[in-house]
Design a protein around this nucleic acid. Structure first.
Length: 213
DNA sequence: ATATCGATTATCT
DNA sequence: GATAATCGATATG
């Protein structure tokens, strides 16, 4: 008895031009796209939550104080992975935006696991008992990096537009619906700017959408 | 359900 | 020496 699994649509990489602009429109356009990690098995997660960090005018951006060894990728050409280590424990993934020489990036905050669930669970040190357990795999910037085995040493500077990279970003023709913006999470400077972009109906967000006032 | 707190280290002042 | 784009555990309503 062969069970027919619905055929997933093919995933096409995003091109460099997609990222060669302000991080805000890039953030909006990234919702619904997929992050792919090639390996023994392929890991796929749908992007449901990101944050924009406009390089020049944003005091919260890592690029705010100028180019350093850590943030150099943000000042380079668009479409590359900027990965940083935070709180002595976690990695976070960004994609560089804007043309070469100008800073800007988008932080990946939450994914919906699509393929490679078992491997993600193993990387996170979790056992999956029911559908509810899937949420904790990738619903946070540090968590998704752990699930996808992303580290600065290995993945910083990766070309995210190339499907030959270990890590890349693609489009499987999913149509994003219900995009909302909210204040960003976990920052102290410019905390009120609504630069967090979410698919509002997704159960895989890192935090709930704040009630409006 | 929300709140608070400790862990742990690269990076910058 | 202080800080940080977080997480997981524990406490409290």
């Amino acid at each position: 008895m062969s069970q027919l699994k619905p055929q997933a649509r093919p995933i096409r990489p995003l091109d460099r031009a997609f990222f060669n602009r302000d991080p805000r429109p890039v953030s909006r356009a990234l919702l619904g796209k997929v992050l792919v990690r090639e390996g023994l098995s392929r890991l796929v997660g749908r992007i449901v939550e990101v944050e924009a960090y406009p390089g020049e005018e944003d005091p919260a951006a890592h690029s705010a104080a100028g180019k350093t060894a850590r943030n150099a990728v943000l000042f380079g050409p668009p479409g590359y992975a900027y990965i940083y280590f935070i709180y002595g424990n976690h990695y976070c993934l960004n994609v560089s935006c804007e043309p070469d020489g100008r800073a800007g990036g988008v932080l990946f905050r939450a994914l919906e696991p699509i393929a490679g669930i078992t491997e993600m669970a193993k990387a996170r040190g979790m056992k999956i008992h029911g559908p509810g357990d899937l949420v904790k795999l990738t619903n946070g910037p540090g968590r998704l990096c752990e699930a996808f085995d992303i580290t600065r040493a290995r993945d910083n500077g990766t070309d995210l537009t190339s499907p030959t990279s270990r890590l890349w970003i693609g489009d499987d023709r999913y149509v994003a619906r219900g995009i909302q913006t909210t204040p960003r999470i976990g920052i102290t400077k410019a905390a009120e700017m609504p630069l967090r972009y979410v698919l509002s109906a997704s159960p895989f967000l890192s935090k709930r959408i704040p009630a409006k006032r």
